[in-house]
Design a protein around this nucleic acid. Structure first.
Length: 877
DNA sequence: GAGCACTGC
């Protein structure tokens, strides 16, 4: 085929640097291109590569939409049809052909191709775009590419990043002769943005600082008048709260040229508060402002208002109140001013509690600059930061890479599947935290995906290999594996559930400023599908409804139906797409389980399959909090029933759940997230009998030290079984007949190898494991009197996570004084007897610390998870 | 009675 005519738009800064870039690519295997927004690097780099004679170019993007639109753009500039010379590949769709030489794709796609093409031989050039975002995918890709570059001397790697920190990429790709990869810097094409600092009064900034930060501008007059509207305090002070500061900043901008304002706030609640205040402040104003909230959970129509022309007559300006959506995925048009509260909800995975947290944190300097940059896209602008310059200077330069903030289970699984047994050997740009890696192994062991044989590298089980092929959360993938085992009818029900869990909820709840009637209507529409025992079955009901409607209606009628029933059409399509993909990946064996039957599957069978992925996500109703809430009910705010879960966490059911009011005795949750409280999302009531069945596997078995009973003429001990601290099998007496006390102890210790020294976990001796069989038990062994003491002070007897028993910490976080000051309810103990003793995964070997802890108690704790197949009760065919 | 944003053969 004829070569395309390659022309570079002269207005793009990258065009001027193209000879330099081309030379760098020609002479080096790895090149870093650092360019700000608008430099044109994304669209022009593939053309430069093409001109250099590169034949098969992979160009990755973090988002699907970007991959597609950039492909369209490049094809247009080269005057070729999309899918011909230039194509794209994203999940569910691709437009590539044999003629394709430039393939735009999401980084996830390239990552996945590694499984079939270990050295990525199908490409001779790889461009990793937006590497500065440091997504988990990019970090893993860069580590992997670092590994294979010596084996692929013909492969060219180009990494592009914003101007922040290109040196770290260059250093990571240092060549054999010790030279870092060359960096080519390209200027951006944005307009200047003036930064003004307007800290809140309770911030630590001095007035001089804020004056300096504000380029010597005086305090605006309007701000004080707003302040006096909001409170009776002296008007001369700075606003004390965020909402007041936003209104004050808007008043300040009122004296500037017209232009829309983008306000960055951490979350939905803050947006609601701010919206109310801004509307209130401008209600009587002669020049009205339009307030538009913008966040991810908003309905498509409400989000779209940002891109539409306003219908308000005589509008002075629009004020868009947004979360981080506006920083990454959406570009709000026409913004001239930015007000930045300087915070965001950042996702963090707690390796200790294994719960996802969403704390509100100060954003990094890079993020703050990205936000203020939004004011300079179309003309020069102003950004007002609601914090001091000093505060800004103290902030971390970059947002922590995702690899340090997220669950690593999926990455670890992929690595094992690709044959990297030792994760510490992998050339990560930023090595993940060892606690995070351990947490990942814990999870993978829990779901039976990995085996940790004594003295050798961890390896994938058969289940693990199946799970690693599935593009989703390992917990969810585990459910599918179990469903397939249970039979095709269970699989048929579980597949849409799993697909539904792995996308954003299709149900749309109108924002608070929508009319009450609309919100009630949405609630009513959604309530039709509610199953009072299980949110999972609710998903099935909703799924069945959607599939029926889709069959009956034409596509545009179906779309209208979705809108009128407050279901997000785009996400519904995504649900269908994921479902279709999962169906091709997982098939039930022909003769397994019951034959496929018409109609509803056995809910218990469905829940058992789901449970296989959620073993440590079980919670048991805390009767005490439930009962106190009844006593306290005096027209006051009702207390929400709390559940006790694994690792001592407490949670309540998410308000959107159909089980919220019922408060069942035992639940399992698809997801547990900590925000202001800890919420379990998508829950199902589980049969209390299951809990008992599970107890044998999961529960902590506590046995008292045997003592001689004259009465019985034998050694006796007391045993009880608890699941996550809740007694499942009540205390009962165990007799060791015709054995004296010493014999009884022998009997008990038969499975426990007692050695003189106890090695703190973390040393090589600490994780004692047995091969093969991994019964799960915890034994808590001490003299009988202290055992009964412990039972009466039950909050302290909850199991502690073995991961907290690090050498440096002799107390676990539950027993140690709480840093947050009294948030923990259980009594503090002088030292931790329940975790800082010994840890093992089975009963075959336990080391006991030689000195007894205060109170003369001795503890053996065994903690491990059974292999997955042994856990869930099986269906009989 | 409530939650940042992405993504995958």
């Amino acid at each position: 085929m004829s070569s395309p005519v390659i022309v570079y738009p002269p207005e793009l800064p990258v065009s001027a640097a193209r000879d330099e870039i081309a030379a760098a690519i020609r002479d080096h295997q790895v090149v870093i291109v650092a360019g700000a927004t608008g430099s044109g690097k994304t669209t022009q780099l593939p053309k430069i590569c093409l001109e250099l004679g590169r034949e098969r170019i992979a160009h990755t993007q973090p988002r699907r939409l970007a991959a597609r639109t950039i492909a369209e753009r490049v094809a247009e500039e080269l005057h070729v049809e999309l899918g011909d010379l230039v194509g794209y590949k994203v999940r569910f769709t691709d437009q590539v052909s044999d003629a394709t030489r430039i393939a735009l794709m999401t980084d996830g796609i390239l990552l996945n191709e590694i499984h079939r093409d270990r050295l990525l031989r199908r490409y001779d050039t790889i461009i990793i775009d937006e590497a500065h975002e440091r997504s988990l995918n990019v970090d893993f890709l860069l580590g992997y590419l670092h590994r294979i570059l010596p084996e692929r001397p013909d492969l060219k790697l180009i990494i592009t990043s914003a101007t922040i920190d290109p040196e770290s990429f260059a250093a990571h790709f240092t060549s054999r002769n010790g030279e870092p990869a060359p960096i080519v810097e390209v200027s951006g094409r944005t307009y200047p943005v003036e930064i003004r600092y307007r800290p809140l009064s309770d911030a630590d900034a001095t007035p001089e600082e804020s004056a300096a930060g504000g380029r010597g501008r005086g305090r605006p007059a309007g701000r004080d008048s707003v302040k006096s509207l909001r409170s009776s305090e002296p008007a001369a002070t700075e606003p004390e709260d965020e909402v007041g500061a936003i209104v004050a900043a808007l008043r300040e901008l009122d004296r500037e040229a017209p232009g829309d304002v983008l306000v960055f706030l951490p979350g939905e609640a803050e947006i609601r508060d701010a919206a109310e205040a801004v509307r209130g402040a401008y209600r009587s104003s002669t020049s009205p402002v339009e307030v538009l909230p913008l966040y991810g959970r908003l309905s498509a129509a409400e989000q779209h208002r940002v891109f539409e022309k306003s219908k308000v007559a005589g509008l002075r300006r629009r004020v868009v109140l947004a979360t981080n959506v506006a920083e990454t995925s959406l570009t709000v048009p026409g913004i001239k001013y930015v007000i930045d509260a300087g915070t965001a909800r950042i996702s963090r995975y707690s390796a200790r509690s294994k719960v996802q947290r969403l704390p509100i944190e100060a954003v990094s300097q890079a993020s703050a600059n990205q936000r203020s940059g939004r004011a300079g896209r179309q003309s020069s602008g102003i950004a007002i930061r609601l914090y001091s310059e000093d505060d800004f200077e103290k902030r971390p330069e970059f947002t922590e890479p995702e690899i340090l903030r997220t669950s690593l289970a999926s990455v670890v699984l992929q690595m094992l599947s690709l044959g990297f047994g030792d994760i510490t050997e992998f050339p990560f740009l930023t090595p993940p935290d060892s606690r995070g890696v351990k947490a990942a192994f814990d999870l993978l062991t829990e779901i039976g995906a990995v085996d940790l044989p004594r003295g050798s590298q961890p390896r994938l089980t058969r289940v693990g290999r199946e799970i690693s092929r599935m593009p989703m959360d390992p917990r969810f993938a585990r459910m599918l594996v179990e469903a397939a085992r249970a039979g095709s009818d269970v699989l048929t029900a579980v597949t849409p559930i799993v697909a539904g869990l792995s996308i954003q909820d299709v149900r749309e709840r109108p924002s608070a400023d929508a009319p009450q009637s609309v919100r009630d209507e949405a609630d009513r529409m959604h309530a039709r599908f509610v199953d009072p025992t299980s949110d999972f079955l609710t998903l099935v009901n909703l799924w069945n409804h959607l599939r029926e409607q889709q069959k009956e209606l034409g596509s545009s009628a179906f779309r209208r139906m979705c809108r009128s029933e407050h279901l997000n059409y785009v996400r519904v399509r995504e649900w269908f797409d994921v479902h279709r993909q999962l169906k091709t990946l997982v098939k039930a064996p022909k003769h397994s389980g019951r034959p496929a039957t018409e109609g509803a599957p056995d809910p218990d069978a469905v829940h058992r399959a789901i449970l296989a992925g959620l073993l440590s996500q079980i919670g048991i109703l805390d009767e005490r909090t439930a009962s106190t809430s009844k006593n306290k009910a005096k027209g006051e705010k009702r207390r929400i029933a709390e559940y006790r879960g694994a690792r001592g966490i407490r949670f309540s059911i998410f308000p959107g759940s159909g089980l919220r009011r019922k408060s069942p005795q035992a639940v399992m949750a698809a997801e547990i997230v900590e925000t202001s409280r800890t919420y379990a999302r998508t829950v199902a009531a589980i049969d209390p009998a299951w809990a008992e069945a599970l107890a044998g596997d999961l529960a902590k078995r506590q046995v008292t030290e045997p003592h001689w009973s004259k009465d019985a003429g034998a050694a006796v001990a007391y045993e009880k079984v608890t699941l996550f601290g809740v007694e499942i099998i009540p205390k009962r007496r165990v007799q060791f007949a015709r054995i004296d006390r010493a014999g009884a102890r022998e009997l008990f210790l038969r499975h426990a190898l007692v050695e003189g020294e106890w090695d703190p976990p973390g040393s090589t001796n600490a994780s004692v494991r047995s091969g093969g069989r991994t019964p799960s038990c915890g034994a808590d062994w001490r003299n009988s009197r202290s055992a009964s003491d412990a039972e009466t002070s039950s909050p302290a007897t909850r199991p502690c996570s073995p991961s907290t028993t690090s050498a440096s910490r002799t107390r676990c976080s539950m027993c140690a004084p709480s840093r947050s000051g009294g948030a923990r309810r259980w009594p503090r103990r002088p030292s931790c007897w329940s975790c800082a003793r010994a840890t093992c995964s089975t009963t075959t070997a336990v080391r006991i610390r030689p000195s007894s802890p205060p109170g003369g108690r001795r503890t053996i704790r065994c903690w491990g998870w059974p292999t997955a197949s042994s856990r869930a009760p099986r269906t009989t065919a």
